[in-house]
Computed example of a mutant assay.
Amino acid sequence: MNTTKDDKPAAAKEHEAAFLLQAELAAGLQHEFGLKPEFSQVWAARLTGFLRIRLGAQEIYIPAPSKAERDAAIFREFDGTNAAAVMQRHGVSRSRLYQIFEEQRAMQLAVSPVSSLKTGQDSA
């Protein structure tokens, strides 16, 4: 019998992996598209079947979300009074929150250093 390192039969391991993929897809469909659980399960099962046929037995690299996008969102959202909420939403520590805020502010100042300063010139 073909077994893996943890002595689970290969077929059981494949079934478990397919089940986990289907569960992740269903959760994503519910979250991203607002599908009801019964519909997301149907779509997730179909997508899982498709992926198993097209990409079965391959290891696939799925890149993490862009940290640049996350950092820009943190800069937009943080108002100085909502640190706990922003930290929880983006999964960062307090020190990382302030570090990101300072980095983003420095980048913004480098792009337009006088954008918020009065120039002393009349607009007329």
Rank of each mutant, 00 (worst) to 15 (best):
T3P: 07
K5I: 03
P9E: 15
A10E: 08
A10G: 00
A11V: 09
A11M: 09
E14P: 06
A17I: 04
A18M: 07
F19T: 11
L20Y: 13
L20H: 11
L20W: 15
Q22S: 12
Q22H: 13
A23T: 09
E24K: 10
L25H: 15
E32Q: 11
F33Y: 15
G34Q: 10
G34L: 11
P37C: 12
E38Y: 15
E38R: 15
F39L: 14
Q41H: 07
W43Y: 09
A45I: 13
R46A: 14
T48L: 04
G49C: 04
G49R: 06
L55H: 02
G56R: 04
A57N: 08
E59T: 02
E59W: 12
E59A: 00
E59F: 06
A64T: 06
P65E: 08
K67T: 02
E69A: 10
R70W: 01
D71M: 03
D71H: 01
A72R: 03
A73Q: 05
T81Q: 01
N82G: 04
A84E: 05
A85K: 01
M87I: 08
H90I: 09
H90Y: 01
H90F: 02
G91W: 13
S95R: 13
S95Q: 15
Y98L: 15
I100M: 09
F101L: 11
A106R: 10
Q108A: 12
L109C: 12
A110W: 02
V111N: 15
S115E: 07
T119V: 07
T119A: 07
T119K: 11
G120K: 15
A124T: 09
